[in-house]
Design a protein around this nucleic acid. Sequence first.
DNA 1: GATGAATGAGCCTTCATTCAT
DNA 2: GATGAATGAAGGCTCATTCAT
Lengths: 220, 220, 220, 220
Amino acid sequence: MRTNGEAAGERRGTVGGRARREQIERAAAEVLADVGYAAASVARIAQQAGVSKGVITYHFRSKDEILRRVALRLFRECADHIVAQTSAAAGPAARLRAGISAELDFFSSRRLEFRAMAEVMANHRDASFTRAFDDVAGVEAVALAELLRQGQALGQFRAFDADEVAHLIGAAKNRVLDRWASDEALDLASASATLLDFVESAVSVRSAMRISDPFDELGR
Amino acid sequence: MRTNGEAAGERRGTVGGRARREQIERAAAEVLADVGYAAASVARIAQQAGVSKGVITYHFRSKDEILRRVALRLFRECADHIVAQTSAAAGPAARLRAGISAELDFFSSRRLEFRAMAEVMANHRDASFTRAFDDVAGVEAVALAELLRQGQALGQFRAFDADEVAHLIGAAKNRVLDRWASDEALDLASASATLLDFVESAVSVRSAMRISDPFDELGR
Amino acid sequence: MRTNGEAAGERRGTVGGRARREQIERAAAEVLADVGYAAASVARIAQQAGVSKGVITYHFRSKDEILRRVALRLFRECADHIVAQTSAAAGPAARLRAGISAELDFFSSRRLEFRAMAEVMANHRDASFTRAFDDVAGVEAVALAELLRQGQALGQFRAFDADEVAHLIGAAKNRVLDRWASDEALDLASASATLLDFVESAVSVRSAMRISDPFDELGR
Amino acid sequence: MRTNGEAAGERRGTVGGRARREQIERAAAEVLADVGYAAASVARIAQQAGVSKGVITYHFRSKDEILRRVALRLFRECADHIVAQTSAAAGPAARLRAGISAELDFFSSRRLEFRAMAEVMANHRDASFTRAFDDVAGVEAVALAELLRQGQALGQFRAFDADEVAHLIGAAKNRVLDRWASDEALDLASASATLLDFVESAVSVRSAMRISDPFDELGR
DNA sequence: GATGAATGAGCCTTCATTCAT
DNA sequence: GATGAATGAAGGCTCATTCAT
């Protein structure tokens, strides 16, 4: 019998414990993807894992910890994957492309986990109802903004508010994943291509020559 | 000559009833914006409205009806506003710009309601856990895709998968609203300008002359 | 505006009021027959009557009063009918037969009301959960027992515990009504004939000669 | 390795679980007997059992399951008891007598449970307000009718509508139990004797010699 | 007379968590 | 390590009743 003060999170030392934790996290992801954040109860997670409810509170401090881990683990794995895939790319334009590709590539084999992560990121809140993952989701945009600024400095990207545009790109990219996550039939590869082309067109420097919109003169 | 047993939803008739319903819907929106979908309970809505819990089930068939109304009403008002603001615009490019502007403009005075609507749209599910608002949110993209196709036919927009790009534009636009909704300090006007510029750049026809990326040759 | 102390039951004076009360009582009977005692709520009664819930508490002191009236009115009307139909009958045996016939006859045009009455009689309780209609239902048995005793004194009926047998006859008779009430297809006339024959055989004096049961000797 | 989310009804396995279930069922029966079907709430049952409300939903899928079990268990035990006690009886007349005696005997040590069962049988309805136990209560009459027909074939019983009479006998028998259940002072043994005599007189073949009713000729 | 509105208690159920074994 | 059992708060909803208009 463990002492009351012992932290459940520390129990991940043993090999069996780690396996159990992962089994539970996987079940939690499945439930989140299936029924959504609001209906993802500990009971349902236990049922999905084929485990008693007690096991879950034995291995996790709280439901909160499970959800956080489901989201953060994937988020970090994704970040690592992107860094690895991006490091070889030379120059901001290539890195931008490589980064987006890497992310889509990363999630392409983790449809279910992506849905789970998205559910948690969008909904999880702390005790005072403040969204808990706004910050962590924000770092992605910060890194992207920095990349955009570098590209602007090098003359690869045209002039725009880099912070703002970083968010727009991130949003477009997430929508591709969201749609694919909720519609398995969607062709992720072709959607990726469209996305890359869309983003590139939006940020790249282009000739001053622009086909004028004949209607533009008419105003509105 | 109506009864409590009768459908509460039909109680819209009397002037007092309509006012109460609106008060409750407002309170529901406030709660949704404040604590999020999962924590938006009838009790909290009642408390926010300063009425007893019973009043709410008196005026609404179910909690579901309240949430649906909070979301759909704003959604429809927004759609109407966009149609009105867009009708004068001549040509797809102008209509695209006008449409986005109109939507941002519409929500600019409804920050709280927008958050509420977003919470419901993202989370509301039916009894079998299927997202309830996926369809209604989809019609927006369908209309946008049609607009894009018209622009392509007229040579205003470059070649791309119109359906896919419609979603990307929608996502970018929503992100602007999302961020502004959760951070009042954000300057919606300037963000709008950036968004419009971003979208226009992404879809407009442009010269074939493109500044080559010196790194591109190195590949990755 | 009436004073608070005024009894709602007194409001039955006016002609309109009486009509309303009867309309509500009829609706209550319909609901009772339809959904049973436990689910017969004021809301459902109001809905059935096509009237607002408020009307009901305006005309009746409480739900309790409605139910009591639904049951008692029919009970009394039935008793009156029986008395009228029985008065002509000469002698206990004839009166027994006439009484049973009269009761079945009385309810034969009040199927729904009978179900309602039965629901209330079987379930209605006072504040301390004591069945409220045990007494009133008992008077029927008392009267029947008296009749049986008279018949015994006259040698028409054989010897038996008259009080006890009164209950048995009453139960058999009620079962006929119960079954017919819940199964419209049942032929009440033929069931009545069987019932009368059954009861008569049970109570009538008969010859001492009885066909011996050949198995009886084997005993058990 | 079971879960709270799993079907609670299957939790019968463990010895402690079974004991709790029985404790709760007993408490439910006590409450039903005490306050009647309509007022038998989960809260009251929990209070009677001396446990928290949650325990009840932990051990039972729903309130419905508890009530059904309370009724059906006793019903089946009773049926088994009757079969056992009746098997030795030779011939329909003896079996009829033995069956009635067995049932009264069975319930004589289960006064409270009988009341509970009667409450549930009379009131329990499904979601569409159809009485849930009409069928199961009907099988008793079917078996009795068959017995009566056998007796008629053997010449032990006189001619009558066996199906109808089976219901009449059942009703009479239940009334004895009902009265005894609500009035402990009632002498069940003597009531039983009267019942058996009553039934036997009603169904047995008797001599054609019948004391004529002098009043009958007068008609009515 | 009549009614829409409101109330607060109570309904059954699900919840996250605790704890003895 | 693991789990069945238990808890009490909270969930959405229905209830009989009260009351201002």
